[in-house]
Design a protein around this nucleic acid. Sequence first.
DNA 1: TTGCGTGCAAAGGTTTTGCATGGCA
DNA 2: TGCCATGCAAAACCTTTGCACGCAA
Lengths: 144, 144
Amino acid sequence: MNISYRTRQRESIWNFLQENKDRHVMVDDVVDYLKSQGNGVGKSTVYRYLEKLVEEGKVRKYFLEEGAGACFQLAGGDENCCKHYHLKCVRCGALLHVECSFLDQVHAHILQQHQFQIDSRKTVLYGLCEQCRETGEKENRDEV
Amino acid sequence: MNISYRTRQRESIWNFLQENKDRHVMVDDVVDYLKSQGNGVGKSTVYRYLEKLVEEGKVRKYFLEEGAGACFQLAGGDENCCKHYHLKCVRCGALLHVECSFLDQVHAHILQQHQFQIDSRKTVLYGLCEQCRETGEKENRDEV
DNA sequence: TTGCGTGCAAAGGTTTTGCATGGCA
DNA sequence: TGCCATGCAAAACCTTTGCACGCAA
């Protein structure tokens, strides 16, 4: 069967996700933080639990860069997320929710002109948010 | 100094990119094709040369999926800046490339109205391609 | 007790790096 | 003749997997 157990490790990981629900976290972030809290969790456990949460739709998984690992973030939860779009800043990790009728035109255009039906729940537009665009222009270019 | 030499290997890789300028290629595509042409090139060489071309802005590098490697494609005309977007079918996995001036309007709209600068190189729009939309309405699920 | 969850280590894949050799200019 | 470029293998990464043990229910 598929009974899910409540364990110390899963509780710790879940709490960390809650505390960082406004940004994305990576596997090593979880492992390192919990270790520093004297609450060590094996890396395999983090991978497996996060993947499970992704399958359940409770967590979103992003691939921002090569070399760097995957990023995870608590899903908004509300199902009306299908009505708006997500903009994710690749620098600071902020996830913006945008509800805009113009994007309906985009949806319609791509459907009619390119025969492709966008699923806005699964689509994330990557780029730079306002703050990072302003501050990041004179800095270095790591973490594109 | 930074003098660049013209070698058989670089010429072969460059030609392959030219011949496939309408799609992206991966490192193994280059290696395998050139080997089949009796024109073998070491994998390290491909990695190093492609990275060099990316730094020079002559090639674009995409990171579409986990597990799979990076994708490379010749950068189109420089200034005309035709945005290149990816549409990925969540059912069959097909990856469509779209260069469409309408998407430039999207880019502009989101920048002006939502203060967010989309990086089309990192953005993939998920949904259903034409065939999958027609055929499958009851079948399996899978994929992000 | 049952069987899911955990952790370690090993394996899997892609990419990078060290170093001796090859080859363009 | 200088160096840059190449290629091989080894290393570095992130992630997955196998297996024995731990632990929640």
